[in-house]
Simulated scan of single mutants.
Amino acid sequence: MTPKTTEITADQVTSAAALVELPLSGPDTDEVADLLSSWMPAAAALSARMQRIEALAPITTFTSLSGVQNEEMS
């Protein structure tokens, strides 16, 4: 298994911003990439810690499928 990188690139930020039609300038894109990269090690550590908890359950559970489209259920 190859190790996961925690670095977020400016290209990744640009691609994600384009998906939601968020215009970002070059300097803003770089700042967002730096900020997200600084958060990723802690987020990855939290994710790994949560995966080790056997009885982890979501805070919110959905008891009804009302409003869910058929294609979302499969």
Rank of each mutant, 00 (worst) to 15 (best):
V13N: 08
L19M: 12
D30P: 00
A17H: 03
L19A: 12
L22G: 00
W39I: 15
A43S: 07
P27N: 07
M40F: 02
A33Y: 04
A42T: 13
A18D: 10
L22Y: 11
E31M: 01
P27I: 05
A10S: 14
E31H: 00
E21Q: 00
V13I: 13
D28A: 13
W39Y: 14
A43R: 06
L46C: 11
S25G: 12
V20C: 01
S25Y: 05
S47Y: 13
S37L: 08
E31T: 00
E21H: 00
A48H: 12
L22A: 06
V32F: 10
A42Y: 13
V20H: 01
A33H: 07
V32G: 03
S15Y: 14
G26Q: 15
P23M: 05
A44W: 14
A43L: 11
S38H: 02
Q12A: 09
T14M: 09
L46Q: 13
S15T: 15
A45V: 09
A48W: 10
D34P: 08
S37T: 15
T9L: 07
L36K: 07
D30F: 05
T14C: 02
P27C: 10
L46S: 14
A10I: 14
A42L: 13
A45I: 08
V13K: 10
W39S: 10
S47E: 13
V20R: 06
S38M: 03
A45D: 15
E31N: 02
T29R: 09
A44Q: 15
M40Y: 05
A33E: 04
A42V: 14
D30L: 13
E21P: 00
D30W: 07
A10E: 14
S37P: 08
S47K: 10
S47I: 11
D28I: 04
A17G: 04
L35W: 05
P41M: 06
S37Q: 08
V13Y: 07
D30N: 10
S25M: 06
L46W: 11
D34Y: 07
L35F: 09
A43G: 02
V32Y: 04
L36H: 03
A45C: 02
L35E: 13
A10V: 15
S25Q: 10
A45H: 08
W39N: 14
S47R: 12
P23D: 13
S37F: 06
D30T: 11
P41D: 09
E31R: 00
Q12Y: 02
A10G: 13
T9H: 09
D28R: 06
A48R: 08
T14A: 09
W39M: 15
Q12N: 04
A44V: 12
D28K: 11
V13A: 06
A18N: 06
A18P: 04
L19G: 05
A43E: 10
S15D: 12
T9D: 01
L24S: 01
A16I: 11
P27M: 04
T14I: 10
G26T: 14
T29H: 04
V13G: 02
V20K: 01
S38I: 09
V20G: 02
Q12W: 04
A18Q: 09
L19D: 11
T9C: 09
S37N: 10
A16K: 09
A44I: 07
W39L: 15
S47V: 04
A17K: 03
A44H: 15
T29V: 03
L19I: 11
A17V: 06
V32Q: 04
A17D: 06
V13R: 09
L22W: 07
